[in-house]
Amino acid sequence: TTTITTTNEEDARRIATEWKNKGYTVHVEKRGTTFRIEVR
Results as ranks from 00 to 15, higher is better:
12 A>Q: 02
10 E>T: 09
34 T>D: 09
34 T>S: 10
23 G>T: 01
4 I>K: 03
18 E>R: 08
30 K>C: 07
31 R>C: 10
33 T>I: 11
23 G>E: 02
12 A>V: 05
6 T>A: 12
5 T>N: 07
7 T>D: 15
40 R>K: 12
13 R>P: 01
39 V>H: 01
32 G>M: 04
7 T>Q: 11
4 I>P: 01
29 E>A: 08
9 E>S: 07
9 E>C: 10
29 E>I: 13
15 I>W: 06
3 T>L: 14
16 A>Q: 05
14 R>T: 06
16 A>D: 01
4 I>E: 03
10 E>P: 05
22 K>V: 04
40 R>I: 14
4 I>W: 12
36 R>H: 15
35 F>S: 01
31 R>V: 15
21 N>V: 08
27 H>D: 06
23 G>K: 02
5 T>P: 02
28 V>Q: 03
15 I>C: 04
20 K>E: 12
27 H>N: 10
11 D>N: 07
29 E>G: 05
9 E>A: 11
5 T>Y: 15
38 E>D: 07
33 T>D: 15
32 G>K: 04
18 E>N: 07
8 N>M: 05
35 F>Y: 14
35 F>H: 03
24 Y>W: 06
6 T>W: 03
16 A>Y: 08
38 E>R: 10
28 V>N: 01
7 T>L: 09
30 K>T: 06
2 T>W: 15
8 N>Q: 05
33 T>V: 10
24 Y>R: 03
14 R>H: 06
34 T>R: 08
24 Y>Q: 02
36 R>N: 10
27 H>R: 12
22 K>D: 03
16 A>P: 00
34 T>W: 13
21 N>I: 09
18 E>I: 11
38 E>P: 00
36 R>T: 14
11 D>R: 06
6 T>Y: 04
28 V>L: 07
21 N>E: 11
1 T>F: 14
20 K>Q: 12
12 A>R: 01
35 F>A: 01
13 R>V: 12
22 K>L: 11
32 G>Y: 04
1 T>W: 15
40 R>Q: 11
21 N>A: 12
30 K>Y: 08
35 F>N: 01
22 K>H: 05
39 V>I: 15
5 T>L: 14
40 R>L: 12
29 E>K: 08
11 D>W: 10
9 E>F: 11
15 I>Q: 03
16 A>N: 02
2 T>F: 15
19 W>K: 02
32 G>A: 05
39 V>E: 00
24 Y>H: 04
40 R>Y: 14
23 G>L: 02
23 G>F: 02
3 T>I: 15
34 T>I: 14
34 T>M: 14
23 G>H: 03
12 A>W: 04
32 G>W: 03
21 N>S: 11
15 I>P: 00
25 T>M: 11
7 T>N: 13
13 R>S: 08
17 T>G: 08
